[in-house]
């Protein structure tokens, strides 16, 4: 062969040896087998996720108010009157669309995270648009949530271009199996979306220590905007964080779950969002495959273990060191 194809393509059995999970396998053997269809609405709607979490006592950013119908918009003024920092987001939004982050007040004006000032009328229009379905999937009418502002833990300050970094953990049958930190960059336009250029940092399951970082599927050693070295990065409150993710299994009943967490400087780990079809990029960020870890859990004989046992299992078996 004159051209070496294997420079661009891995041999399938090499990927198999590395325990890499394929998309087809994820869909057929995990998502459709372990996630009951009827449970999916629980995680597709942020309001129901939040209610579920609050009922189960799982920490989430506090819900300050819900605007459900157009005529409720009248009460917005009363609701926001005593609030100086909050976030308005669509319950059915995705990809960061329609999220309005207010970090302070200037008289009657609202100050956005970027420093821009908005009048009450602007905020009201944002809510009306949200209800009208401007930000929801397929344009369906939606509900606007008002929740407390998350202030990212200072450890991330030097690593984030904008926004709050989140930690994605894959939780299989209640066992956290792999985790990564997602950091927005200039290239990703402040969004923590990997295929738009956010940085994914693989995290060691035992300690929360960074393993390696990738941007556009290529390894990077420093944050492209802040130039900080990733090797010094370690996520605090690690065990508490894993425990929260593991509890999402009992909370939702979904066997294969992507849990997005944030670290608030005062509240600690909070659950931001759940995903029933989490992507596979986490494998690239971690430099290792999901499949072998998932199969380890599938072969465990004991029935449902307690949350703490599952976390301990993950920390001892899925560590890199």
């Amino acid at each position: 062969m004159p051209v070496n194809l294997f420079k661009w393509f891995a041999r399938p059995h090499a990927l198999l040896d590395a325990g890499v999970l394929s998309m087809n396998r994820r869909n057929l053997c995990y998502v459709s087998r372990y996630n009951k269809r009827s449970l999916l609405p629980l995680v597709d709607d942020k309001l129901s996720t939040k209610r579920l979490a609050e009922k189960a006592g799982v920490a989430v950013p506090k819900l300050l108010g819900v605007i459900q119908y157009q005529h409720d918009v009248q009460q917005l003024h009363k609701l926001l009157d005593h609030l100086s920092e909050f976030v308005i987001k669509p319950a059915n939004g995705s990809g960061g669309k329609g999220i309005l982050v207010i970090t302070g007040r200037d008289g009657s004006d609202f100050v956005k995270g970027s420093g821009e000032k908005l009048g009450f009328a602007d905020v009201k229009r944002h809510v009306t648009n949200t209800l009208g379905g401007l930000y929801s999937l397929g344009g369906k009418t939606d509900v606007a949530l008002i929740e407390s502002l998350i202030r990212a833990d200072p450890v991330f300050e030097r690593y984030s271009h904008e926004g709050v970094p989140d930690i994605r953990t894959i939780v299989f049958k209640g066992y956290p199996v792999m985790a990564m930190l997602r950091l927005a960059t200039k290239a990703s336009d402040g969004k923590a979306n990997l295929h738009q250029g956010a940085v994914g940092v693989g995290l060691d399951m035992a300690s929360g220590q960074s393993l390696r970082a990738v941007q556009f599927d290529q390894p990077v050693t420093h944050h492209p905007d802040t130039m900080q070295d990733f090797s010094a990065l370690s996520v605090p409150h690690w065990k508490q964080l894993l425990t929260l993710t593991a509890r999402c299994y009992e909370m939702t009943g979904l066997g294969y779950l992507g849990v997005d967490m944030v670290l608030d400087q005062n509240e600690g780990p909070l659950i931001l969002e759940l995903n029933a079809r989490p992507g596979l990029a986490i494998q690239i960020a971690n430099g290792s495959g999901l499949r072998s870890r998932l199969e380890m859990i599938e072969t465990l004989k004991s029935g449902d273990n307690a949350v703490s046992e599952r976390v301990t299992y993950a920390m001892t078996h899925f560590s890199h060191f």
Partner: peptide, 25 residues
């Protein structure tokens, strides 16, 4: 349930080399 052709390209960085220790960054 096997790999897609484009996955062979996407995940090619996952094969072979053992993971670097963070100290070796």
């Amino acid at each position: 349930t096997g790999y897609r052709l484009l996955e062979l390209k996407r995940f090619r960085s996952l094969i072979g080399k053992p993971l670097q220790h963070p100290a070796e960054y």
